[in-house]
Design a protein around this nucleic acid. Structure first.
Lengths: 127, 127
DNA sequence: CCCATGATTCAACGATCATTGAAATAGTCG
DNA sequence: CGACTATTTCAATGATCGTTGAATCATGGG
């Protein structure tokens, strides 16, 4: 609303909200994990060979673009993932270190749990 | 609906539903953990000195009886806790061994996470 | 047998959820 | 510029959630 000096950085795209990791509450994290599609996004992300190289568009097998966007937002607002824009594409990644500092050991067991279970859909992300 | 031979066991009270541990899905577990009151119930239960001795009535600081009953049901239906009736009282306990077998390591990190965080309400259960 | 107690159930409420499909936005490339 | 692509936003839906308070149920004790 108060933007003045732009046109300098071309690839700044609208910034999406990411909470400070200290402000993230356990109950909100678990609520964000309480959906099979979101667990699917998380494990697929965790199993991606190269870190921070997973395009949002790589998840289309899991849901429609618009529904994916909704679930991406849930994970992001719960402090679990980060969305980074690069040109016309967005990349999704897990906030590993921060999250580990905030809730030590939690993410690993969550991912292990989701990975082991056949009710969680998975995709192979071709980077 | 088809009860015939009763009156033998006086203290059988209506049985509450507990899912088979194999039928429990990760997404449902996380959804059940996605509420501060339920996390409060869980950590208070985990910190209770004597196992399987926590009366439902011991949690009244966390919510009204009727709301507690609702949250107890959520935890129970997600396979996390067990409710046992004894006379006019009900006892609540964590399905430790079963749950550990089904989702190794998960419950410990969940409880640790909840225990560490000030947003999760706790009570001391006097057994 | 009636009453007190512990706990669940029910009905109602506003709020949020997951999902859909259409529209808007941002960036790229001809 | 204008078409195209990747992604988000919006509006609308039915479903489920968390909460309240009143009603119900089960048990034990006078």
């Amino acid at each position: 609303m108060s933007g003045a000096a732009d046109a300098i950085k071309p690839e700044v795209m609208k910034q999406l909200f990411h909470p400070e990791i200290e402000d993230v509450l356990p109950a909100d994290v678990f609520a964000a994990l309480g959906d099979p599609i979101r667990l699917g996004i998380l494990v697929s992300l965790a199993d991606c060979d190269e870190v921070d190289k997973a395009r949002c568009g790589a998840f289309t097998e899991l849901a429609s673009p618009s529904l994916l966007s909704y679930h991406f937002a849930k994970l992001r607002e719960a402090g679990i993932t980060r969305s980074r824009a690069e040109g016309t594409v967005r990349f999704l990644s897990i906030r590993r270190e921060e999250f580990e500092r905030r809730f030590p050991g939690l993410l690993d067991s969550v991912i292990e749990t989701a990975r082991r279970d056949p009710s969680v859909p998975r995709i192979k992300i071709d980077v």
